[in-house]
Design a protein around this nucleic acid. Sequence first.
RNA 1: CGGGAUGUGGCGCAGUUGGUAGCGCGCUACGUUCGGGACGUAGAGGCCGCUGGUUCGAGUCCAGUCAUCCCGACCA
Length: 493
Amino acid sequence: MAKELKELTPRGENYAQWYNDLVLKADLAENSAVRGCMVIKPYGYAIWEKMQRELDNLFKETGHVNAYFPLFIPKSFLSKEADHVEGFAKECAVVTHYRLKNDPEGKGVVVDPEARLEEELIVRPTSETIIWNTYKGWIQSYRDLPILCNQWANVVRWEMRTRLFLRTAEFLWQEGHTAHATEAEAVREAETMLNVYADFAERFMAMPVLKGLKSPNERFAGALETYCIEALMQDGKALQAGTSHFLGQNFAKAFDVTFINKDNKQEYVWASSWGVSTRLIGGLIMTHSDDNGLVLPPKLAPYQVVIVPIYKNQEQLQQISEKVAGITAALKARGISFKYDDNDNKKPGWKFSEYELKGVPVRLALGARDLENGTIEVARRDTLTKESVPVEHIDSYVARLLDDIQANIYKKAFDYRTSVTREVNSYEEFKEEIEKGGFLLCHWDGTPETEERIKNETKATIRCIPLEGDKTPGFCMLTGKPSAQRVVFARSY
RNA sequence: CGGGAUGUGGCGCAGUUGGUAGCGCGCUACGUUCGGGACGUAGAGGCCGCUGGUUCGAGUCCAGUCAUCCCGACCA
């Protein structure tokens, strides 16, 4: 049998290998000829498009508009905000020339040394600087505020080690950049977007997340406060799934962006920024998928239903296709996306395995036997169960089933997270428990030094200071100093 | 940038003490199949990463070089 071919490394054997196998074999993405950069294949990109559509709706509903800013940023811009440049300088791609010429020595082309740029350009690792340089021209008065822009773009961060979707040198994301008249409004914006991200993660990705604040060590370069959503992967490691930042007046000051307030006084503008990236696809994979392949939430699956005809000859296929036409019309009327795979080159068994690997939530199989009995076989990906049901009203049956799958995989992920989230009170215990993975709720004295020491000794970091839940004060598990509340420790991606 | 490994048909690999390259999958054609990755028959496809050396002869030995992957330090 050819079965071994697309077999995945089991999760229990090697989680990282399983993940890699899955991305490749489910046809989501592959490594490209460019080191650290991936090719997102059509099936993977379809998931991204679904994410984009839903997120974009949520952004629009909260009053944002889309715009586009340049890929290139003058090098001098980056250095205007001290923390920002320090955070990003080490991983910037730099454009130094604008022309090639034929190699005078013979083969190929070489950079034309005559064509050196007067000011070098960096490829954006994020766009705060170019955007605040631009906003300067847009803002004079409080009447010009707020500005609530988002852009869908690619960015480049020259990473040493990359992993498909989770960390690549170039990645796709959205970055919102807002400008406000007051501090409170900018903070509120950062919080609003955090809630949008959490809502998206839970409702669409079926991925439970913790909402929290980053510790100073983990804060975005240039931010006064970074909010985040943290998810927990099946191997017990945390994944930062989205961040929003309260930037204070740092960028306004760096780019001299001021406005006249209602009292006719000159004031610096308050800012926020927020983003999620194609990394979410990595999170999606590692939250739900199993040893048989991808498990996709119905709300983000490129197609929610696949229909496989089972036939012995063309007449049978003809009959089945006619029946399927009725089914697909009904599905379409309900807004359910589907694929009817009547490809004659592959056998049903092959298709079953293939769509399982690709995580299609619901599979319908229809054969001659079903035509006789008025039935259809329904298989659900999340539980790997199948049953034969009456073919009439299959559309409403499927609609319910999709909701059920969406809820079920969320619950499964939520229960898993609950089962590996626990309170730890001593550092001794912590060092033991961290090896098992999961979220550890611990008291911390609030100092970067303590966090740093824990990180060096255990590789665990503070994933977030939760906004919700238990706020009881206590004493730091390491130093015994007072702690305002428990924070979340984990090893992370 | 340190530590480890690997480069051989599209993919995954084998290749003995050096003797002129093989297997599985995939691909093409035809036939039989078709309710969980079908089978048969016949085909196509390879400067063995690159450069130099040793040798009558190198996928194999030596040197260099390039690339990729894994493990660490940095990060969404």
